[in-house]
Computed example of a mutant assay.
Amino acid sequence: MTDTTTEGDGDAHVRPFADWLREQAGGKSHDELSDAVYDLVQRVKDTGKKGSLVYTINIGPMKGDKDVLMIDDQIKLKLPEHDRKASLFYTDKVGNLTRTDPNQLVFESLREVEGGQLVDVQTGELREVT
């Protein structure tokens, strides 16, 4: 470690990172990181996929006074995404998407009703779908 402070007995002491983090941005960074880790864990458990959390700290001298440092930070959270269900579509003769296969024969006198039955539109007769 190159940057240390000296205590009264002359031994170098490095301040714990967690102590600094609790003070950065008035404690906001610590709180945001805590929330981000929690959200990441929940989403990983929910999706079964990996995610990531990146914490970046930028430190630079204040113009005109090298003993005063400007510190800003950035939190980037990449939550794993849920799988999205795909849909099946066909293209019609002019290239538009349609849910109906344009090569399929159309039965104008039958339509599907709840319960897996077909109704003959002309006679009103119900038929079981097998």
Rank of each mutant, 00 (worst) to 15 (best):
L118Y: 08
K45Y: 05
P102A: 09
G115I: 09
T56W: 01
E7H: 04
L126H: 14
Q74I: 01
F107Y: 14
T2H: 01
D31K: 13
D72N: 15
E23M: 11
P61Y: 03
F89G: 01
T4V: 08
S34Q: 13
P80K: 11
A25N: 12
A86T: 13
R22S: 10
R111I: 04
G26N: 10
I57Q: 14
M1P: 02
R84Q: 12
T98R: 08
L53R: 06
L79S: 07
E23S: 04
S29D: 15
A86Y: 03
Q122W: 07
R84H: 08
R99I: 05
L110A: 11
R84Y: 01
P102M: 13
K93P: 02
S109M: 10
K85W: 00
F89T: 14
D72E: 07
I75G: 03
L118I: 01
E108K: 15
L69K: 15
H13W: 09
L53H: 05
G64Q: 07
V37P: 00
D73P: 00
M1G: 15
K93Q: 11
N96Q: 13
D83H: 06
R99Q: 11
K85S: 09
D11F: 01
S52K: 10
M1T: 02
I71G: 05
N96I: 06
E114V: 01
G51D: 03
K93T: 07
L118K: 04
Y38F: 07
A18R: 08
S52P: 00
D67N: 15
Q24Y: 08
T98S: 12
I75P: 03
T47K: 12
A12C: 00
G27Q: 04
L126T: 04
E125G: 07
L40Y: 08
K93W: 01
D101P: 07
L126C: 02
D101C: 06
Q122R: 14
E32Q: 11
T100K: 15
D67E: 13
G27W: 10
G116C: 09
L53I: 10
L110T: 08
P80Y: 13
V119T: 10
D19N: 10
K49I: 01
K49G: 08
D101S: 05
L88F: 02
T47M: 04
D39I: 00
L79E: 04
L88K: 14
P61F: 05
K49R: 14
D31G: 15
D39A: 14
L21N: 10
E125N: 11
K85P: 00
D120F: 03
L97H: 05
T5M: 10
